[in-house]
């Protein structure tokens, strides 16, 4: 059975606007992403990769100085990137929900959790207070919280992990078709974080809701997601089924990211395979990763098209085997050779 995608982002570019209204600089360029129901898609990147900006663009929460310059975002087949603010607000919460890193910020500090949950429910659907209460408690139980106690608590009475579970319940109870989780566990402890991600993936499979999990943590994405994308400097570097990416990373950046983490078990190398340079090093032209890529070649001054390889797995590197040197994408238009401008 072929399902219709929940979220379809095609050729999305986001840029920074100057006071005069002209576009200064692209922060995200040419992003393509497709999410199907019940799928968890991991979006991995370091700081400055544009992963959070992509999420904000989908949620319609871009700050005023940023704007979408190209591309479109379809939610269940409807274009949502040009909707007025009011319509976007109606979509958030109902059709798509978000979970942020800052768990405190998702709730008003001086009102009881229960009140906030039931009000959110009633704002979207006509139902009695009693019904709303029952649904809220049911979801609090599903996220493995003592429902009654949490229902009657103020946000500051709960721990970070409990709050994040509550926001998980709050987003799932609206039965959204898409949840965007932006670094949902970065502020939490490792063990708590793992539990919450497990909970998220379990409930997500049950409710057939699609999840876009944004994280800087490669390991947690590798463990749970069905598909994943890696971003660098505002571009997609690699995208594909998680199993395939893990087994056979294509892009040098992904390969190096995977190797940069110390292994939990097995042979421990004496030195880690670090990627030289800082995440802020992004080339203005051509492959954004080129300034840090040890396999950089002359042709890298041109932005490679993201080519689909085997298994629906694509990589935005000109070279099939960067460590070797054979260029399959012989698009190196040498007549246009330009200097790479390092930022």
């Amino acid at each position: 059975m072929i399902k219709n995608p929940v979220l379809q982002i095609s050729g999305l570019s986001v840029a920074l606007r100057a006071h005069s209204g002209s576009w200064i600089r692209h922060l995200v360029q040419g992003i393509n992403l497709t999410l199907y129901p019940g799928e968890m898609h991991g979006l991995v990147g370091e700081s400055g990769s544009g992963k959070s900006i992509t999420a904000s663009a989908v949620l319609g929460l871009l700050p005023g100085s940023l704007g979408i310059t190209e591309g479109e975002i379809l939610l269940n087949g409807k274009a949502i990137h040009r909707l007025p603010e009011k319509a976007k607000r109606r979509l958030r919460g109902r059709e798509m929900a978000c979970i942020f890193q800052n768990d405190q910020g998702s709730f008003a500090p001086f009102r009881k959790i229960g009140k906030q949950l039931t009000e959110a429910l009633q704002a979207h659907e006509k139902m009695s207070s009693r019904e709303a209460r029952e649904i809220s408690c049911e979801w609090l139980e599903r996220v493995k919280l003592p429902a009654q106690r949490v229902f009657d608590s103020y946000p500051f009475q709960l721990s970070g992990g409990q709050l994040q579970r509550t926001s998980l319940a709050a987003s799932l109870m609206m039965k959204p078709s898409l949840i965007i989780a932006d670094e949902p566990t970065t502020a939490l402890d490792v063990l708590t974080a793992e539990q919450i991600l497990d909970l998220l993936s379990g409930l997500q499979k049950k409710t057939e809701c699609a999840v876009l999990l944004i994280s800087h943590d490669l390991t947690s994405v590798l463990k749970r997601t069905d598909r994943m994308s890696v971003m660098y400097g505002g571009h997609l570097m690699e995208s594909g089924p998680t199993a395939s990416v893990r087994r056979n990373p294509l892009h040098p950046y992904t390969k190096m990211l995977l190797k940069a983490r110390p292994p939990l078990d097995g042979f421990m190398p004496d030195r880690l395979a670090a990627i030289p340079g800082e995440p802020g090093a992004v080339a203005d032209q051509g492959c954004p990763f080129a300034p840090r890529c040890p396999y950089r070649k002359e042709a890298c001054v041109h932005m490679p098209a993201s080519g689909v390889r085997a298994d629906d797995h694509s990589s935005a590197c000109l070279f099939a085997d960067p460590e070797g040197g054979d260029s399959i994408a012989a698009v190196a238009r040498s007549d246009q050779d330009r200097e790479v401008v390092w930022r």
Binding site: L16, I24, R25, L27, S47, G48, S52, I53, A55, S56, L62, P63, S65, L66, F100, Q101, D182, E183
Partner: peptide, 13 residues
């Protein structure tokens, strides 16, 4: 998220 965006937005300034 906001910190990241703020950073991106504020950098030119």
């Amino acid at each position: 998220m906001n910190a990241a965006i703020k950073k991106a937005v504020l950098r030119p300034a």
